[in-house]
Amino acid sequence: MDKNKFRNLFKRYLAGTLDEHERQELDVYMSLLDESDFSEAVDELVELEENRDFEKERVFQGILNRMDKKDESTTASSPHSRKMRLVQFGKVAAVLLVSGLLGLVAYQIFDVRQHMDEVISMQPAVSTGEIELPQEDALITLADGKQMSLDEIKEDTIYYKGLAITRLDDGTIVMKQDREAHFFRADEKHHFVTPKGVSLRLMLPDASIVYLNSNSSMQIYAAFGKKQRQVALSGEAFFEVAHNKELPFVVHAKNTEVSVLGTKFNVSAYNEDRQVETTLLSGSVEVGADQNRLRIKPGQQAVVHSSNTIQLRKNVDMGNVLAWRDGYFRFKDVSIRTIMADLAKWYPIEGVEFKAGSSDQFTGSIKRSKKLKDVLESIEQVSDLRFDIQEGRVIVMK
């Protein structure tokens, strides 16, 4: 099977530019398709066509029409073969919903025709309630207790006890310090906090860049960059560490210690998660937990469990890991529980109640700037799930 040819045909099919011969060729490819090939095609489509408005109903009807043609071409003398083809197609059946939310795909293992009928006939059932993103900004608490929000840091530089704090045009907060100043004790810490719905780009005194994700916090010692470069992280952050072979850069996150000299990597260590994930983009890092140590290479991920064991994952999808840094939720073959856990890290959801489960596996990208209500409605469009928002809680049902 020519996968590149299939991807091109599939992309053109959704754009409505296939001629009859190409439609027949696509039908042949679809009959030979497996789920991994389809998932890759959808991922590529989302990235290339994320700003394009697809016509949802035309896509739905096109899939149904293709199934009709398949039914007509199957003889009555081969019911078993017909059923097998339907099941095979059902394993990779997809409904794409863009409508401003990029793309979302739900995979289900049952008869495609039945699923398509349900999707087309259903109406969004998200309640009129909404969970709004907070209006808070990131907060900086200096080692002596002085607090300032990003709103206070406009065009002017704030000078305070040997520190110079500036906000650049792109929103980056730059912190510089007088190396000769001694207003703070070496063991005191400056504290950076991002509430839900807010992320922060920060330049540390050593010129390292930190992207702090929503609902996260990071502490740096007042003596950072002088005799050590150590930070403590809760939540998630992406680090672009300035090289300094004399002073290793160390991230402490729960039971994990990540040591580097200069590199780019992501650390996810939310309190509600059972593990700490360190993913390397470039360079080299050493991940430690108790007496265990593991050095990882670019494209690899070290997962530290609560037992201090370290698991190595190879060939990690960096696009998924770093989607938050670029302003997106990105999912690939994940359950609704995984999606709701990720949404709860961005939106101020007070709790999620599952009154119904689902075997659906979702793939797609959604902008984090969207309202929660819109995100949940997009999930309803491609599954049999319904959502109700009540007093800050999300109820998942059917």
Rank of each mutant, 00 (worst) to 15 (best):
I165G: 05
K189H: 05
V193M: 11
V193G: 05
D178L: 04
D156P: 01
A164R: 13
A164Q: 12
H182P: 06
A181P: 11
R185K: 14
H190I: 01
G171P: 01
P195L: 00
L168Y: 07
T172Y: 04
G171C: 06
T166N: 13
E180D: 15
I165M: 06
F183H: 13
K176R: 14
I173D: 02
V174A: 07
R179V: 15
I165C: 08
A181H: 05
Y160K: 08
F183N: 08
D170E: 10
T157E: 14
I173T: 04
V174Y: 06
A164Y: 12
D170C: 11
V174M: 08
H190W: 00
A181L: 05
D178W: 05
Q177D: 10
T166G: 10
K154M: 08
A164D: 09
G162I: 05
K154N: 10
K161I: 07
T157G: 07
D169E: 14
H182N: 14
E155M: 10
K196L: 08
Q177Y: 12
G171N: 01
H182T: 15
I165N: 01
A164G: 11
H191G: 02
H182R: 14
R179I: 15
G171A: 02
T166E: 15
V174K: 13
K176M: 12
A181E: 15
A186Q: 12
F183Y: 09
T166K: 12
M175R: 06
I153C: 03
I173L: 11
V193P: 04
T172H: 03
I158G: 04
D187T: 06
V193W: 04
T166P: 11
Y159P: 08
L168R: 15
D156Y: 09
R179C: 08
I158F: 11
F184V: 03
E188A: 12
F192L: 00
F184M: 01
V174F: 07
I165A: 05
Y160G: 06
I153A: 02
E152Y: 08
Q177W: 05
K196G: 03
H182C: 11
H191L: 06
I153E: 00
D178T: 08
L168Q: 10
H191Q: 07
G171K: 05
D170N: 09
D187Y: 07
K196R: 13
Q177C: 10
Q177T: 11
Y159H: 14
I153V: 11
A181K: 13
F183I: 02
K176A: 13
T194M: 03
E155H: 07
A186P: 09
F183G: 01
R185L: 06
D178Q: 04
E152L: 09
P195V: 00
R167P: 07
A164H: 10
